[in-house]
Design a protein around this nucleic acid. Structure first.
Lengths: 339, 339
DNA sequence: GTGAAAGCGCTAACAA
DNA sequence: TTGTTAGCGCTTTCAC
């Protein structure tokens, strides 16, 4: 059978209480005895049973994270960051991957919420946010949302300033001399998509340009290709395009290349997210990078504060994105015409 | 305070034992009483404390998964599959992201292994496999390895036939009429890299071609770009290239395009893994897809069998990859020369 | 500084 | 069919 605290007590000649004290770094243990216990622990290769601890302490020591996809540089970065910071504080990470629920499913909105296996939850860019918020509040499970789409005054959130990102992406293009600039946005029900678009509009308007070329696309999907093809067919090729994410940008570039346009010579394209592939493709993507490490770090700090009962005035953290200037954008070279 | 089994017992007018029986679907409960209990459970919104269950049952109901990166279509697919299959069996998924250990770290090789929080572990394409295997066997933690690089006779593994993948990729190129075919491999210490290379060599040799153009690259890193540039500089441009993964292929294509070559007109390039971006780039990548869903499904079945004590003769499962023919490869058009 | 005893919430023997 | 009793391994009063 597994070695337990009694075995350690017996071996060290002390009581289980003293062993427990050593385990928990209680100051009231004679140095000599502490050594004995530590030695016994090492010799027996003992480690405390976490279920027993959880039972008596009422805390599990694990934080849940719900997300929809892993294969994304932003999510990947955030998850890694969350994992590392949790690990540093002695917490475990449990993951729940939310797939689209079938319409008529009666299943509660998330697996992780069904049991008491986590002390708190980090919700990363959820699809069905409203349901999550409602359920989590009903169950009184502490939670933090990263990249939330809706607006929940009572909820603690960590977001990146998408307005600023859209604004800076557009300014970058304007600074390069472009005036006919298009934007392909994400789905409108994503707050982030709306904010990037607003940033675009603001920058354009400020520069006295018309922000009229806007198409609504779909994050992460190859919509850029179709939209661009459409614009090409209609003879509406702008000299620069701000795509709401890198995948859209990729599709745009593919359509342009197939139609004989050169990027960035004929058309500049800027993406968003700085996906891993962004610096592998030809041309390398100019894009907006999100501060994934910080996002994870803050989310962890906040959720642990909440779990540990520290006051938390449902903070709204807002982080800044960063422009990464690579090859897919360049100075305006003149009227665009298919060569 | 949280509602517990006593509350349910009181409310339903039965003992906690009967409640427990209902919870565990014991057949020996009068239908009438079962209903009463169920009703009380619902009214009180009760759910059993998992720590208490874990403590008494000696099983946690969670399976750990260790990996090195998420941002990869293959890993992503496997993790999703593992998650879904575990969920279907009522298990939770805990994740540990292995980052490279600092040289002098005394830290045990993996976080998840340190406590008794998991019933078993799925090791996904680990970097320091030997250490893992040793540690896990020493601790008697059941485990299954997916995409293992070394050769461990005693370990249960799920792998994809990389030899076959390399063979088919090469055959595809040969079938297209190519004869001067190069291969950029992954690091040689990856079994998968060696096997893909062997498949390449076998296919070439079988066709009476010389498999002499081989360069050792680095999985997932932009090595393809540099190697291809080198070949171009030396005037050693083959008419087709089999890259050991899609990222390498991307780099190869970028170098070719920058040097004025057309892919696939001048040079055909085939990748490996079918990353998400593979069908977004221009040209869309021809590649080898791994059966990620099956990999996850089998790994889960195996680990749960082991956890539940079913006999398991350290199975070596070998799955088949699939060729995805897209745009980056085409029929041999004649001598390659820069146009 | 240390230990005896109670109890966290549940399941498994054993009786009834 | 149901309930009583005894733990699972640990932490936490509360005496000593």
């Amino acid at each position: 059978m597994r070695v337990n605290i009694f075995d350690v007590a017996k071996k060290s000649g002390l009581s289980i209480v003293t062993v427990s004290r050593v385990l928990n770094n209680a100051p009231t243990v004679r140095e000599n005895n502490r050594k004995k216990v530590l030695e016994a622990i090492k010799e027996l290769n003992y480690s405390p049973n976490s279920a027993a601890r959880t039972l008596v302490r009422g805390k599990t020591g694990v934080i849940g994270l719900t997300l929809t996809a892993l294969n994304d540089s932003v999510f990947d970065g955030v998850v890694k960051s969350v994992f590392e910071h949790l690990k540093a504080k002695g917490y475990f990470l449990a993951i729940s991957i939310e797939t689209k629920r079938s319409e008529d499913s009666l299943e509660p909105c998330n697996f992780l919420f069904q049991e008491d296996r986590v002390d708190g939850i980090i919700v990363l860019s959820a699809l069905e946010e409203d349901a999550y918020v409602a359920e989590l509040e009903r169950k009184h499970i502490p939670f933090v949302m990263i990249d939330s789409h809706g607006d929940y005054p009572e909820v603690t959130t960590v977001n990146v300033d998408n307005y600023l990102g859209g604004y800076e992406a557009t300014q970058h293009l304007i600074g390069l001399g472009h005036t006919r600039i298009a934007h392909i946005s994400g789905q409108d029900w994503f707050l982030s998509a709306r904010q990037r678009k607003e940033g675009f509009i603001a920058a354009m308007t400020e520069a006295g340009l018309s922000p009229s070329l806007i198409a609504e696309g779909t994050f992460g999907i190859h919509c850029g290709y179709g939209i661009m093809q459409d614009w090409i067919a209609k003879g509406q090729v702008p000299s620069a395009i701000f795509a709401a994410d890198d995948v859209i940008a990729l599709g745009v570039i593919r359509a342009l290349m197939e139609a004989g346009y050169n990027v960035p010579h004929d058309v500049s394209v800027i993406g968003y997210d700085d996906q891993t592939f962004a610096k592998e493709v030809h041309p390398m993507l100019t894009t907006i990078r999100q501060p994934v490490e910080q996002m994870g770090a803050h989310a962890v700090n906040m959720i642990l504060d909440m779990v540990q009962g520290k006051p938390n005035e449902h903070i709204k953290m807002q982080l800044k994105p960063e422009l990464i200037f690579r090859e897919s954008t360049s100075k305006y070279k003149g009227v665009v015409d298919k060569r």
